[in-house]
């Protein structure tokens, strides 16, 4: 089987994969990084969003071999070095931006991608950017609130749900 080498959360990793092995499968099954969730496996739900060379991608719709030499960041790479929650993760916790938590890894990764290109997004910009991330529990309000809070903006004007 062909070998693939990439950097995941700052660590050099490699493994033998099939041509058809998806990045999501490589991360979960070969590396044991099960924080990347596979919800739909049809690139609709966004639970599997990771960063590939800095850009958000649905890991279920990228082949592992296409990530050869790339830098990948998963939800496991979002915590602070001491293991405490990162800013976006903490905001999700503080503002109840999750219920069952299944979509949360993808939500956090998409939010991180947004805040990298737009440090102070408006509520509408946050909603538009999270278009490809589906949550069946929260009704989104608290997720939007969490992202707004993570960007250091006032969230008091958004009604509590």
């Amino acid at each position: 089987m062909p070998k693939v080498t990439m950097t995941v959360n700052g660590m050099a990793v490699s493994g033998e994969v099939e041509g058809r092995t998806l990045l999501s499968d490589f991360l979960r099954d070969d590396l044991g990084l099960t924080g990347t969730h596979v919800g739909c496996d049809t690139s609709q739900c966004g639970a599997c969003v990771v960063h590939l060379d800095g850009a958000p991608v649905k890991a279920c719709s990228v082949f592992a071999l296409d990530a050869e030499g790339a830098k990948v960041t998963t939800i496991e790479g979002m915590a602070n070095p001491d293991g405490s929650l990162g800013v976006i993760q903490k905001a999700f916790q503080d503002h109840h931006g999750l219920q069952c938590g299944f979509c949360t890894p993808g939500m956090v990764m998409s939010a991180a991608a947004l805040l990298k290109e737009n440090r102070k997004p408006t509520e509408a910009e946050i909603r538009a950017y999270l278009d490809g991330n589906i949550c069946r529990c929260t009704g989104y309000h608290n997720i939007v609130k969490a992202v707004l809070a993570a960007s250091g903006q006032d969230v008091s004007r958004i009604a509590a749900e």
Partner: peptide, 9 residues
Amino acid sequence: IGDPAVRSR
């Protein structure tokens, strides 16, 4: 087109 993650690829 699509959503941000789709547009990356």
